[in-house]
């Protein structure tokens, strides 16, 4: 991996150096050097977008996706550099150019953000100690909910007391209903943990031994659900960032081509 990043950086530096050098020569000859930086940028954006095509053509021997990612990331960095060179500023003038820049930056920063979010989420997901497939989460949660309801019913029946049931309806039912604490989990806050702890503390003093037995079973399920919730949040974000990155990159491609067309047809 490290070797491939080194190779990709080397290639990027060579491309950047060559482009800058030729642009310099062009300027000496009073030619429009933006043509070169512009077309290189376009080529690069097409290459970055081709990552999606590589994913679709997984059955062809088109190099490993991990190699693609290395060149994609480094290519993305080269892209922003060329973008600055091409526009000769960080924020160009003109309405059309501003729209193009917004999309460009969104794609770029979503890429950078997503890259690091994914890497860090992978480790956080491992930390939970469980593995659930994203699509299976709703089914897992409803199973947990059913089991928790069964425990409450049985507790009420065998202990003839509705303390646990009332408590459940007032608090835990909300918790078991669907994934909770999405944002706190995302931000790395322990709200779910605190909530569960308080929830437990607020009722245990009213329970007798038999009820405590049932209640502990509920808490065990709640702890499991907390881990599944974490999976939900982290996997959800792992997927959703691409929903920004991918469509915007398609938009970027379209606008870029349009931009080239306008320049070629009208400006010259």
């Amino acid at each position: 991996m490290a070797n491939r990043y080194f190779l990709a950086c080397l290639v990027a530096v060579i491309i950047a150096g060559t482009v800058l050098y030729i642009m310099d020569q062009m300027e000496l000859n009073l030619a429009k050097s933006e043509i070169l930086s512009g077309y290189t940028l376009l080529g690069l954006i097409v290459f970055l977008g081709a990552f999606n095509v590589r994913k679709k053509l997984s059955m062809l021997p088109l190099l490993k996706a991990s190699t693609w990612l290395v060149f994609h990331v480094v290519g993305g960095l080269l892209c922003i550099f060329l973008f600055w060179v091409h526009t000769a500023s960080i924020w160009p003038d003109g309405n059309y150019e501003i729209a193009l820049s917004i999309i460009f930056y969104l794609v770029f920063f979503s890429g950078i953000g997503g890259f690091f979010i994914q890497k860090s989420n992978a480790i956080k997901l491992t930390e939970t100690g469980i593995e659930v497939i994203y699509e299976r989460i709703p089914a897992e949660l409803s199973e947990i909910r059913e089991r928790s309801e069964a425990i409450v019913l049985e507790c009420t029946k065998t202990t003839s007391s509705d303390t646990v049931a009332n408590h459940y309806i007032a608090t835990l039912a909300w918790y078991f209903k669907r994934p909770r604490f999405y944002w706190p989990t995302l931000l790395g806050h322990g709200n779910a943990k605190t909530w569960l702890r308080n929830n437990q503390a607020s009722v245990t003093r009213y329970l007798n031994e038999e009820e405590t037995g049932y209640f502990n079973q509920l808490i065990e399920l709640a702890e499991l659900k907390k881990l599944i919730d974490e999976h939900y949040t982290l996997q959800d974000i792992n997927k959703k960032w691409l929903l920004v990155h991918l469509p915007l990159s398609v938009g970027l491609l379209i606008i870029s081509f349009w931009h080239v067309l306008l320049v070629e047809v009208f400006a010259i």
Binding site: S58, A65, A122, T126
Partner: peptide, 9 residues
Amino acid sequence: LNKCVRCDD
């Protein structure tokens, strides 16, 4: 699992 982003690609 420390590298896997659970993308199912």
